[in-house]
Nucleic acid binder design. Sequence first.
DNA 1: ATGGTGGGCAACCCA
Length: 264
Amino acid sequence: MRIVTWNINSLRLRLGLLERVVAALAPDVICLQETKVPDELFPEQAPARLGYPHHLRRGMKSYNGVAILSRVPMRPDDGAPDWCLKDDRRHVAAVLDTASGPVALHDFYVPAGGDVPDPVANPKYAHKLAFVDEAAAYFTAYPPLRSILVGDLNIAPLEHDVWSHRQLRDVVSHTEPEIARLNAWLASGFVDAMRHFVPPEEKLYSWWSYRNRDWRASNRGRRLDHVWVTPDLVPALRGLTVLQEARDWPGPSDHVPMAIDLDL
DNA sequence: ATGGTGGGCAACCCA
């Protein structure tokens, strides 16, 4: 089973690149973030045309939005709360019907948090911290089993998840309060599946800003996108592919797609 | 210290 996660930064604008992701990675399941399309304007025929007869979407106008496309049957999992009571379409969950039994799949888009790393001065940063606190509390209260959590978590927790740990200490996405909360969320029942494959002393990024002349030359990346699995699925982990070449495709997202393989 | 580039969608919001 191959599951892809990708912050597509507008589903409608990048349907062609989504097709390219399908050709490059042949995923069984695709989790998207920042679809930026309300449900009533979702391109209804696109998933089936790409080979995904099953899909779930939770979108809104202009901002946020998540979707899961699947080749394998799944049912919606509506158990989670409305995070921060904002109804801002940052999470969709499904239960996948796999050969080894049901597996829960969570697709998250965590608030980016604005520019100023001060929850008093910056409500977007306060929202981000509260969102991660809520998610950690939820999974602590309802310990996950046979679960996969993916998405744009907008936090790069490790020193080598950013191009310069020293220079990003006070940059939102790599601040101590965010990292502490992300670690608490992870500890609520998950293992970092990306770092299962790539040792923590090795640089690993999933996002490169649009605001660089040459993203590859400067390589000022961050690992904002994550794949977590519950410990009971660790023995099923088979591989990780970060499709860095997609950052060079015409009209790219600033995030690259990545695939996790599991023997399910 | 600053501003750099994107998307959505019609003025600035957000990343």
